[in-house]
Design a binder for these strands. Structure first.
Length: 284
DNA sequence: GTATGTACCTGTTTGC
DNA sequence: TGCAAACAGGTACATA
């Protein structure tokens, strides 16, 4: 599932692949990924033909492709979204890759938005080249030059919620999903149910430091991959899966203490933790 | 304003 | 063997 490191890998690939290319053809093969473009799939396609890409930007897990008109194509990969860049002659058949939207580019290459589970999507953001209005509510991520760690710690400790919910709150700090939340909690030896307002200031700084570190390490390895659902624009997987200490390790020994890792339900998803290093907080 | 719960999706795995 | 149910989970929206 693409989180910040995976989305950043895709962004870097897109900068190389689409910058200065002109859209000469758009095919919307399934309406769902453009559901947020209220004027409909045909309008989505018509508006983009003739536009020139000027780069690729990101905030948290949102990506956007600024256009020379000042508008942007805003994208979210959701659970299983991928961007692929191919030569038309060598690309795999459309139906084998769940291609939902295809862009013909000047120079002959094809940019495809593929999405098996269709939680992701594309939309046109008018005037959104700099920062789409649709992502204005998303907090800066830990790799953003203007990310304000002190402010995140202050806001986190003021919230009346639990630590894991706070990490996943994209309006507090963006880019973190279930995988890297579990990894950072394991490194910080914290249980996800710990109340944020009982967290010592130094512990909050430590936790957010682990968040940044684990995502930086994942990015350096090209991201994490599961079930080939996440790949870069060339269809290649990252290598960080072997670096995970918590996520997906239910029943395996904790790499710190050897106790078997456990998996628990958490808000319609799951959390994996060490029952010894990450003790459940006392209630009340 | 803030916190929480649910719907949206489909390929794969699990259970009867 | 075959079908149904469970599961994965980020975001938008509804509800409390």
């Amino acid at each position: 599932m693409p989180e910040l490191p995976e989305v950043e890998v895709v962004r870097r690939g897109l900068v190389e692949a689409v910058s200065d290319r002109i859209v000469d053809r758009v095919e919307v093969l399934h309406p769902r990924p453009v559901r947020h473009h209220l004027a409909g799939p045909e309008d989505f396609a018509d508006r983009l033909v003739g536009e020139r890409f000027t780069g690729a930007s990101r905030r948290g897990k949102y990506l956007w492709l600024p256009l020379s008109s000042g508008d942007a194509i805003l994208a979210h990969l959701g659970m299983s979204g991928q961007f692929r860049v191919d030569d038309p002659d060598t690309a795999a058949p459309v139906e084998h890759r769940h291609v939902r939207v295809r862009f013909g580019l000047s120079g002959g290459r094809v940019l495809s938005f593929c999405d098996q589970r269709m939680f992701g999507g594309l939309r046109i953001s008018p005037g959104g080249a700099e920062l789409p209005a649709e992502v204005a509510h998303i907090a800066r991520d830990p790799f953003d030059p203007e990310y304000d760690l002190d402010e995140v710690v202050r806001r986190m400790r003021r919230k009346r919620t639990t630590v894991k919910r706070a990490l996943l709150d994209q309006t507090l700090v963006s880019g973190i999903g279930n995988i890297y939340a579990d990894e950072a909690l394991w490194r910080a030896r914290l249980h996800g149910d710990r109340a944020t307002d009982t967290l010592a200031r130094t512990k909050a700084y430590e936790l957010l430091g682990h968040v940044r570190d684990v995502m930086a390490e994942a990015l350096a390895q090209g991201g994490t991959s599961f079930d080939a659902l996440y790949v870069n624009v060339n269809g290649e997987s990252g290598y960080f899966e072997r670096g995970l200490d918590a996520y997906g390790r239910e029943g395996l020994p904790c790499r710190r203490c050897g106790r078997a890792m456990v998996r628990e339900q958490f808000a319609n998803r799951s959390s994996t933790r060490c029952p010894s290093c990450q003790r459940r907080p006392r209630q009340g």
